[in-house]
Write a protein that binds this DNA or RNA. Structure first.
Lengths: 150, 150
DNA sequence: CCGAATGTTGACCTATACGTCAACCTGACG
DNA sequence: CGTCAGGTTGACGTATAGGTCAACATTCGG
């Protein structure tokens, strides 16, 4: 498992205590290379749910990794709704009854299926582009042989 | 190379002749499982440029595969602008001077890089989800052993 | 106590990717 | 000749993913 996801899953097991360091929205934005506006937007869509201290949002390391997972999802071409799905899958595990676990398992299998389809599409297109690339390289060699100083 | 892309690249070599069968926007939409509105929208964004017959749009097999490529791009999480990029790469090859070929080659390499990054993100997330899946299956087995009739 | 920093909500603006609807044209059929 | 399927453009509406700006609260340093 990647560091970010491992950290996140681990952080779910230990609740926040007095030792927990909280930080503001600007710091979180800087840490993850995004903007405060985007972070508030994600909260609006329930992808992040920080505590409130004096009316201000208070984030922890948990939120850093969660936000990183959001960004990875976006890099995969997922919508925020899809990312929320995946995050819920990370979060809900471990504490359910068997029926709940079976439901979540079904959703995980769905997500896996969709991601595999997406991955296969990408693999196909990548292979095609690489073939085109090689054909072009061959063309260029041929042309350069024909008129080397043109 | 996939059938759809192979067909498209092949179709680029032979121009439309009198034998070419044209068909309307509704047929194209049905053939590709999309809507006429979407197809007109793609034309607006210059992803499709059908001939006009009596004011109406006339499509060929070339457009069918091109539209299929558009849909595959979307399934990969690409924007229409990105898809247009890829389609241009399919289309522009073979007829350029060396300098043009080098430019196009650069763009192909960019696209390949982006797609590889996206593929790697997906691979990582897939691996994580599969681990979670297996942990959950193990949990469920354990719970069922503890209270089999609950 | 004042101001700068940091934060808040709310409202409005933007681009993308279409759906929906209106009003119109146009060729084929009876 | 009417009309009906099939097509056209244009205008407006919708959801997503934010950016931008205004107006206001809070807290810290001097």
């Amino acid at each position: 498992m990647s560091k970010v996801a491992r950290d996140y899953v681990a952080s779910l097991r230990k609740p926040d205590d007095a030792e927990t360091k909280y930080f503001g929205i600007t710091e979180l934005a800087a840490a993850c290379g995004t903007t405060a506006r985007a972070i508030r937007f994600y909260e609006d869509k329930e992808l992040l749910t920080p505590r409130r201290i004096n009316g201000g949002r208070a984030y922890t390391r948990r939120d850093v990794v969660r936000l990183s997972l959001i960004q990875r999802g976006k890099a995969m071409g997922m919508s925020l709704a899809e990312v929320k799905h995946i995050l819920d899958l990370y979060g809900e595990r471990g504490q359910g009854k068997v029926a709940q676990l079976e439901y979540i398992l079904g959703r995980i299998d769905e997500s896996i299926g969709e991601l595999e389809a997406r991955r296969d599409h990408i693999a196909t297109t990548l292979a095609e582009l690489k073939i085109i690339r090689n054909e072009m390289l061959a063309d260029m060699k041929r042309k350069r042989r024909k008129k080397p100083a043109a």
